[in-house]
Computed example of a mutant assay.
Amino acid sequence: MKGNLLPLYSHGKDKVIDVSGRELTLSAGLALTVADHDLDENGNTDRVFVTGTVVPRPAAFAHGRDWYLHIDLNGIRHESDLIST
Rank of each mutant, 00 (worst) to 15 (best):
A35L: 13
K2I: 08
L82Y: 04
A35Q: 14
V55Q: 00
L30H: 06
T51R: 15
N42V: 00
P7C: 01
M1P: 14
D81V: 10
L8H: 10
F49T: 03
K2H: 11
V50Y: 05
R77N: 10
L73C: 10
S80C: 06
V54T: 06
V19S: 09
L39K: 07
E23N: 15
L82Q: 15
S27H: 13
R65D: 05
Y9W: 08
I17E: 12
A62N: 04
S80R: 11
E23Q: 15
F49N: 03
L5W: 13
H11I: 14
P58A: 13
L30Y: 03
D38C: 10
S20I: 10
T51A: 14
V48C: 01
V34G: 07
V55F: 01
L32A: 01
N74Q: 14
F61S: 02
V19E: 05
Y9G: 02
T25P: 08
E79R: 09
S10A: 13
L5I: 11
L8S: 11
E23F: 15
A59E: 12
G29N: 12
H37T: 13
V16Y: 02
G52M: 02
R65E: 12
F49V: 04
P7G: 01
M1C: 12
W67D: 01
V48E: 00
D40V: 04
V55Y: 00
P7H: 01
I76K: 06
I17Q: 13
L24Q: 09
F49R: 02
S10N: 07
F49A: 04
D36I: 00
D18H: 11
K2S: 12
N4I: 09
L32E: 08
P58I: 10
R47Q: 07
G21L: 15
S27K: 12
E79K: 09
P58Q: 06
N42W: 00
Y68L: 09
L39N: 03
G75I: 07
A31G: 08
K15Q: 10
R22E: 04
T51W: 04
T33P: 05
G52P: 11
Y68R: 06
S84Y: 14
D38K: 05
P56R: 08
K13R: 13
L73W: 12
E79T: 02
G75F: 07
A62I: 00
A28Y: 05
N42P: 00
L24E: 06
G64A: 04
I83S: 07
S84N: 15
G64I: 03
N4Y: 09
T45K: 09
V55T: 02
E79H: 11
A59H: 03
S80W: 05
I76C: 02
V34M: 12
T85M: 11
I71Y: 00
T53V: 11
G43M: 05
T33A: 12
H70L: 09
S84W: 12
G52F: 02
G29H: 10
D72W: 01
M1D: 14
L30K: 13
A62T: 04
L39S: 08
L26D: 03
E41R: 04
D36P: 00
H37R: 08
P7D: 01
F61C: 00
L82W: 03
I76E: 06
A28L: 03
Y68Q: 10
A31V: 07
T53Y: 04
V34Y: 09
V34W: 12
D38L: 07
D46L: 11
